[in-house]
């Protein structure tokens, strides 16, 4: 089971991303409808479609030896989903008071939870199973590390976070809570 974290600058540019593979088993909640998908086309565009529709992950589940490696973990698709979920997040965050927006959006097999800092930075987490409290505490810890990093006068809010310490602490936190 994997988690994908994105930290977005206030202008919605990703400044940090992390893919965390949890040791917990993935809950296979695939719909029977997504079984036995046809492998019907060979053009590159069909590949895009397959990936975007989330079908490749299903293929991976059913037939282990398929050619498509990565499947549902396709980074591009994950990013597309995260990016698209910003629509919902922007909508919800204006109405909700809390910083933690749990399961704000669902797309394909992914659930998107978000955390909005007072400075309008957004933390996005794509996850497959329900783990509200874990995600909340993960977000709070990431927030703390994020604030500490941002206090560095050489760190611009627009630029990618390259700090090793930040990365290490986020990973540790992810390991702990997710």
């Amino acid at each position: 089971m994997s988690h994908h974290l994105f930290i977005l600058s206030p202008s919605d540019t990703p400044i940090y991303s992390l893919t965390h593979y949890s040791t917990k088993p993935a809950a296979s909640i695939g719909s029977p409808l997504s079984a036995n998908l046809p492998n019907w086309s060979t053009s590159a565009f069909a590949g895009t479609l397959t990936a975007l529709s989330g079908a490749s992950s299903a293929t991976q589940h059913t037939t282990g030896g398929t050619v498509r490696v990565g499947g549902g973990q396709d980074r591009h698709v994950i990013q597309m989903i995260a990016n698209a979920s910003l629509d919902a997040i922007e909508d919800v965050m204006r109405k909700e008071n809390g910083m933690y927006l749990k399961a704000v959006d669902k797309f394909n097999e992914w659930t998107v939870s978000a955390f909005i800092t007072p400075g309008n930075s957004k933390f996005l987490l794509l996850h497959e199973s329900k783990n509200d409290e874990g995600i909340r505490s993960f977000f709070v810890e990431v927030w703390e590390v994020y604030v500490k990093t941002m206090m560095n006068p050489f760190q611009s809010a627009q630029r990618t976070i390259v700090s090793q310490a930040f990365d290490g602490r986020v990973r540790a936190s992810a390991k702990k809570h997710l």
Binding site: G54, A88, V104, N108
Partner: peptide, 19 residues
């Protein structure tokens, strides 16, 4: 709410589109 509409629409999207 727009959000609820979007949630409903999103249900239609999935691997089954390939069928």
């Amino acid at each position: 709410s727009r959000h609820s509409i979007s949630n409903v629409i999103a249900q239609a999207h999935g691997p089954w589109l390939l069928h």
